[in-house]
């Protein structure tokens, strides 16, 4: 069974379902003659579906990259201080310049995410290599500390509602045409990472091997840092952080395909899109016509998957 065509077919099927499911009744067969249905699909259903696919794919790829950067499988963009950094940047720019244009907010979020992720990498560098579990713990601690700073500042400046939508919700119900397009930047950044897939795979082999093969490790680290930060910042600003995708999907794919990223990154992207879309659909269906955030479903499913992965892991891995 080849994963790429199977996942591709699954994604297409889910996208079709996603376009037809929602509060309004839309029949895809009569859509060309039905203006109202067309409007629903083009303005709401399709943007939402695309937003979910982009988010899932980009976050999963970002997960692979951050795991290669710290050489640890138990971290993701949601447990490395990245999302909290993006929120901190957004808060800062919102408070300092409330009328700031969108592009400036994006730059602030990405730059702050980059700074906090770089801080995480610097912390990880000082940890003993063999203590595998210290890395995710350091990530959780850093995320927790940054998160509490965000909460404190948000509380003091009466911006808690924003903070909630960035860091907690992780849902797509607010997505309509014109309000999700930033996610394309996340998708493009993740896609560009594929062109450096070999470099990230070599970096994952350790500094010694990477340097021996003539790789400039610092340059690859900077590139990975930029991609992870941009992806996370875009997701945080548009739909809020989605937990577990960037942690679980890279692990699942690596178990089956290994770490030759040039062949596995497309599979990672597709698998991430399928997982998040499935969760979003489940969230739309469980209490129709109301919704449960996709992030909530993923939180439950992701935790179960992660525990299973931990349990199934070979002892000498």
């Amino acid at each position: 069974m080849r994963p790429l065509p199977v996942l591709g077919a699954a994604l297409l099927a889910l996208m079709l379902v996603s376009v037809s499911v929602g509060a309004a009744q839309v029949d895809l067969r009569t859509i060309l003659s039905d203006h109202r249905a067309m409007l629903v699909v083009l303005e709401s259903r399709l943007p939402r579906t695309v937003a979910v696919v982009l988010t899932g794919a980009a976050l999963s790829v970002a997960g692979v990259l951050i795991q290669a950067l710290v050489r640890n499988r138990f971290v993701g963009p949601d447990t490395s201080g990245t999302a909290e950094g993006a929120a901190l940047g957004l808060l800062a720019v919102t408070i300092l310049w409330p009328a700031s244009p969108l592009w400036l907010r994006m730059i602030a979020a990405s730059a702050a995410a980059m700074a906090t992720t770089a801080l995480f990498l610097a912390v990880v560098r000082r940890l003993p290599v063999r203590e595998v579990m210290l890395v995710p713990i350091a990530g959780l601690v850093l995320s927790g500390v940054l998160g509490s700073v965000v909460t404190f500042v948000g509380w003091q400046s009466d911006l808690m509602q924003y903070v909630g939508t960035w860091l907690m919700s992780g849902e797509f119900s607010g997505v309509i045409s014109g309000r999700y397009e930033l996610l394309w930047f996340a998708g493009i950044a993740a896609a560009l990472a594929w062109f450096s897939a070999d470099r990230f795979a070599i970096l994952g082999l350790g500094d010694g091997v990477a340097t021996g093969l003539g790789l400039s490790t610092a340059a690859v680290m900077r590139l990975g840092l930029a991609v992870v930060s941009i992806v996370t910042a875009m997701v945080v600003t548009t739909v809020g952080m989605i937990p577990f995708v960037g942690l679980v999907v890279p692990n699942l794919v690596a178990r089956i395909m290994g770490d030759n990223l040039r062949t596995s990154l497309p599979v990672v992207a597709l698998a991430g899109a399928v997982l998040v879309l499935a969760c979003d659909l489940a969230g739309r269906l469980v209490i129709r016509p109301y919704e449960v955030p996709a992030g909530l479903i993923l939180g439950i499913l992701g935790a179960v998957l992660f525990l299973w992965l931990l349990h199934r892991r070979p002892a000498h891995g």
């Binding site: 050489r71 499988r73 063999r130 082999l205 178990r255 770490d259 030759n260």
Partner: peptide, 9 residues
């Protein structure tokens, strides 16, 4: 070689 977690063939 230190312990490497990379899963390459």
């Amino acid at each position: 070689q230190t312990a490497i977690a990379s899963r390459l063939r």
